[in-house]
């Protein structure tokens, strides 16, 4: 009993630690302008939704949200498609030197983005893709692919070898083995990768700041950072905007959480 209480106390402390910034964000977003810079009160005396309406109607946030969504969706879909094909080959097709490929892929993902930004800028410019969504999708994919390949490879490796053999004997081609057996069985891995890549591209700031010039390709993190403040930083609007952009990610995680829970392979083979 005491043990359990202690456990719950610990959990509560950790939760508080993790949720504090978000809570503070929420509080700030509903504080009227006058109370923003003063402490106390901790909780707003006259809560207001004015910042939300300002952000929605008077800023470019909605456009940025759309951009972010497009970039994230295209990046994720592309990464998953290419990543799944690569991971299947590396995990299940007895590729000679598969370990070497994986090491090479990992070493690529070690490059800090900041080190590659000047050459990338030249390339993107030369292609005439500056300030386009396509540029961001392409760049994000190059950074998220190594991650996708690695995660998916480890998940696909866990698909029992006999299942692959059974599918092959039953008459599957390699592509059919992937689509009819490995992907459904490796669904938790796919869901985990989906979320990680989506969050990465949703949050990415450096590349977005460098390659977007106008609102045509400006994504949410950049849009919020560039909120116009004439004489002071508009904390209320920034908080409201941050709350709004957190919602899609939170929803996504909730939806996929169930799929991530493993146990999908239970019953396929003895164990």
């Amino acid at each position: 009993m005491v043990r359990q209480l202690r456990l719950y106390a610990l959990l509560a402390a950790v939760a508080l630690f993790c949720l504090l910034p978000l809570t503070w964000l929420l509080i700030t977003s509903v504080k009227p302008e006058a109370e923003l810079a003063s402490l106390p009160p901790i909780l707003p005396l006259n809560p207001t939704s004015i910042h939300y309406w300002t952000v929605i109607y008077e800023s470019t946030l909605l456009r940025a949200l759309l951009n972010s969504l497009l970039v994230a969706v295209f990046t994720t879909v592309f990464s998953l498609c290419v990543g799944a094909l690569a991971a299947f080959a590396l995990a299940k097709l007895r590729l000679p030197g598969a370990g070497l490929y994986l090491a090479a892929i990992l070493s690529i993902s070690m490059f800090p983005p900041i080190a590659t930004i000047s050459p990338l800028y030249i390339v993107v410019n030369a292609l005439g893709l500056r300030d386009t969504i396509l540029a961001l999708v392409g760049l994000y994919s190059t950074f998220s692919l190594p991650l996708s390949v690695w995660i998916l490879t480890s998940f696909f490796k866990a698909v029992p070898e006999e299942l692959i053999r059974a599918a092959r004997v039953d008459g599957c081609s390699n592509l059919q083995i992937l689509s009819k057996v490995v992907l459904p069985v490796g669904m938790p891995g796919l869901a985990a990768t989906f979320i990680l890549v989506f969050i990465f591209s949703w949050n990415e700031f450096l590349l977005a700041l460098t390659f977007s010039v106008t609102e045509a390709s400006r994504t949410v993190p950049v849009a919020i950072a560039l909120f116009p403040g004439l004489h002071e930083i508009p904390w209320g609007e920034i908080s409201a905007a941050s709350m709004i952009v957190s919602v899609p990610i939170a929803l996504l995680v909730f939806v996929f959480q169930k799929r991530i829970v493993a146990g999908l392979t239970a019953g396929s083979v003895k164990g």
């Binding site: 029992p160 006999e162 299942l163 009819k180 459904p184 069985v185 999908l264 019953g267 083979v269 003895k270």
Partner: peptide, 10 residues
């Protein structure tokens, strides 16, 4: 037929 049965779990 395999030792582990190798049924498709999904």
């Amino acid at each position: 037929v395999f030792q582990s049965y190798a049924l498709y779990p999904h």
